[in-house]
Design a protein around this nucleic acid. Structure first.
Lengths: 316, 316
DNA sequence: CTGTTAGCGCTTTCAT
DNA sequence: ATGAAAGCGCTAACAG
């Protein structure tokens, strides 16, 4: 008891005793058992669960860092799981996190069914979805302004004179993919162009698939003069394909890349980047969660935020 | 009690009762409290603590993924903390992890003092150091074969005719930096060249610092004809600086890059990559930890492993 | 200022 | 096949 009191501030413990306690703690290497601590009624665990789709993607590494830093600010630690875009794994992770008494969850959903994220399944544990929304799931969500970013970038390409603009995107079940496609398509249609299905490749989740899709576009009888890449995996795949097939820069199509990519701006390819900081996205998601947990907003209605993106200039 | 029995396999529970229990669990959304569970004597928490230096570096994102995947294989979850190369934060993280009853630790040490990682401080909790060793700390450690990789790459540059080879490296207190420098220096000395201090820049932890260091080298009266970049932050910084200052490729120095970098091979700069998969490094560290935890090797003497690296061909 | 009691959720052991 | 007791480490509430 005296030890407990000393370690939680030392109220009502003689200074001399406190000294001896701290001494003993240091020499014995004693650590208070946080799990036992949080078992007492009303005590939170200080841990939040984070499920992301692909840690190998630098984008999500930075995202996770944003979450981690804000969590630290709020005195929390994160438990991290990688879903690999696999719904079953996401379900398993979330369930495990709940069993481990996380105070809240931050999830980049794989898309598809989402019963495991419904408030009634999670009890009092709040969730924040990040990067992607889930249809019909009414929980806090932070997205980018995907549609506007895609729209304005595509429009800029049209204004610059490009007409045959292809599209490389993520799997259709992912909300981001749909939103970015929508912006792209709207810009073309408003400009009076028709969508050409042969220029539109959707469903590439990794660099290799994106590279193959881009090769298909490059080998068309009339290849696109520009290609909209809906995420960094597709941008990198497209750049690889161009590097393979078109060593002479002149013939290469211009690219729009959603998400920034290290070194891309050094390549001799006309490139327009729609940029934003994934770390901010993670930080924002974490703040939304802690608003609920610490900010007395436990029961507020859910919020949907769309963070602004920067549409750069066509360069290179 | 009956619930507990049902959920742990259902021995000695009537089938009909088990059915009702599972029913109730499903409708109530009950989750077994894993923290309470692991409080019982002899029960492990199923969590390992992972402290890495910089999640914003794609290298460590992949590293973390390697750890996470192997941990999943072994039925464990990870608690992840970012130290930002700050020793105080590392100390705090490790202490917190211990308080949270982690079964083991995987740490990319910031370097410097390391009393907080000594076995006597950690009790029975095993640690594995990854990527970097700590002088005088006798615990399991997984490194790359840094010295050999740096040596052979430098030698290859010498054989290709380069003589003024600069060096961009990490802070000196980091063991990796020292080992890679050693390989570089040995190759030069064996070849009969002297080390030129004006070509050797050490201490760059991030891309921006690396870029500035590279600019300094490029602005020398007699700039280097090649530069050895001791990690991916330095490689990217060097590439940025070249992109800024030497738009005409011909004048640019060749680079050796330790660690692969997405897109680097597409740039028109002669480049030799010393490559390895950071995910493997993480996976290997995790396996070493679980060897100790599950493999009955609790008390074996500590092991030091150096994973092989691939030295590529100068290209571009 | 210090110590005792009780109970958080769980499961091993011991009744029944 | 089921339940009761006990104790893991902790701290709020209550003695003293």
């Amino acid at each position: 008891m005296t030890v407990s009191r000393t370690l939680s501030g030392g109220k009502n413990v003689r200074a001399e005793v406190q000294e001896r306690v701290k001494q003993a703690v240091a020499t014995l290497g004693y650590h208070r058992n946080e799990n036992a601590r949080s078992m007492r009624p009303g005590q939170a665990s200080g841990v939040i669960g984070v499920a992301i789709t692909n840690l190998a993607n630098p984008y999500y590494g930075q995202f996770a860092l944003g979450v981690e830093e804000v969590a630290s600010e709020y005195g929390r630690r994160i438990m991290l799981g990688n879903t690999g875009e696999d719904l079953a794994r996401e379900v398993q992770l979330v369930s495990d996190f709940v069993g481990r008494q996380v105070e809240g969850l931050i999830v980049v959903p794989t898309g598809g069914a989402a019963d495991h994220l419904r408030p009634e399944r999670l009890g009092a544990i709040p969730v924040v979805l990040a990067s992607r929304a889930v249809d019909g799931l009414d929980v806090d969500t932070v997205l980018l302004d995907d549609t506007r970013g895609a729209y304005e970038a595509t429009k800029q390409m049209l204004d610059a004179g490009y007409r045959r603009i292809g599209f490389l995107g993520n799997v259709v079940s992912v909300s981001t993919a749909g939103r970015r496609y929508e912006g792209y398509a709207r810009a073309l249609v408003e400009f009076g162009l028709e969508l050409d299905p042969s220029l539109i490749m959707r469903g590439q989740q990794d660099v290799r698939a994106a590279e193959l899709a881009m090769e298909t576009l490059l080998r068309l009888d009339v290849p696109p003069t520009a290609v909209f890449c809906a995420n960094n995996r597709n941008t990198i795949g497209a750049l690889q394909a161009i590097g393979q097939l078109q060593p002479s820069d002149d013939a290469a199509p211009a690219l729009v890349g959603f998400d920034d990519v290290e070194l891309a701006h050094l390549l001799r390819i006309p490139l327009l980047i729609v940029s934003h900081d994934p770390k901010d996205l993670g930080a924002h998601a974490a703040r939304m969660l802690f608003d609920r947990l610490d900010g007395g907003m436990r029961a507020e209605p859910s919020r949907l935020v769309e963070l602004p993106v920067g549409v750069g200039q066509l360069r290179g």
